[in-house]
Design a protein around this nucleic acid. Structure first.
Lengths: 133, 133
DNA sequence: GTGACAGGTAGGAGATTTCCTACCTATAGT
DNA sequence: ACTATAGGTAGGAAATCTCCTACCTGTCAC
């Protein structure tokens, strides 16, 4: 009942810590790593990192494998789909926002490299945009 | 300068609470709403929800607007792009995973027991570089 | 065997979160 | 003016989080 449950709550809670997000990034970029190597990236004592790893493990975001006297921690990305799925119904709202005229003016400079659907402007349909001026 | 900071840390921390995620969902589906209406969806006392709203406000995820004696809270989805941006480099990892043969098989065989994906370890081969067997 | 090293677990201190009840101001209606 | 309503803030209790220092087991090397 641990390490594979990956409930939405657990995943979001695990991601709330910058340390744990960094661990996931390290595992993503560096492949499976032993605890000591991961700990080298942080100021905290090694057992503290172990606890962060436990949180990640219980959220299903990492798995460990014994390798000699080390334990290799490895990224398990699948539970992150919970986040993506939670996020996706919001997507059209920030698209609306980012392509809106006001925001366009606000951020002329970082508007150049995004994708290029121009289909916005069905804003204002849930009453969600009923104020601006 | 408070409703627009939207640091990654604040956004992730705000999303860590199921209550706050639900508030965002309610605002997304129901449009801007006064505090009392939002509070009706939860068992907690109204001032407690006010604090959750403050956290969301400080993360830039909602804004408020005075409307008579009410305050309409409104979803601000843009800071959620921080989450999406953090997430996107992980995408290929779960894609790899979900389209992998072994996981397909795993999935078929625990399709009936829902929350108990058993251990079935020892399957590495591509995902994480520097992985040998 | 002994020693050195990897890493988990225990217990605790201090900070933070999450809830509460009381209380405050501001607005609307009479 | 007075009363009722909306909602923020204060202060505190309890739970949880995050870090620490011990301490424990398991494995490699000799």
């Amino acid at each position: 009942m641990d390490a594979v449950s990956a409930s939405e709550d657990q995943v979001f809670a695990a991601l709330a810590s910058p340390v744990r997000r960094e661990v996931l990034r390290l595992l993503r970029d560096g492949g499976p790593q032993p605890v000591r190597k991961l700990a080298g990236n942080f100021a905290m004592a090694r057992p503290s990192l172990s606890e962060h790893l436990r949180v990640l493990r219980e959220a299903g975001l990492v798995t460990e494998r014994k390798e000699g006297r080390e334990r290799l921690y490895r990224l398990e990305a699948v539970p992150l789909t919970e986040v993506q799925q939670w996020l996706s119904p919001f997507e059209r709202f920030w698209r609306d926002r980012l392509t809106g005229l006001r925001d366009l003016l606000d951020r002329l400079d970082d508007e150049g490299q995004d994708d290029e659907r121009e289909d916005r402007d069905e804003r204002e349909e849930h009453g969600q945009e009923e104020e601006r001026r």
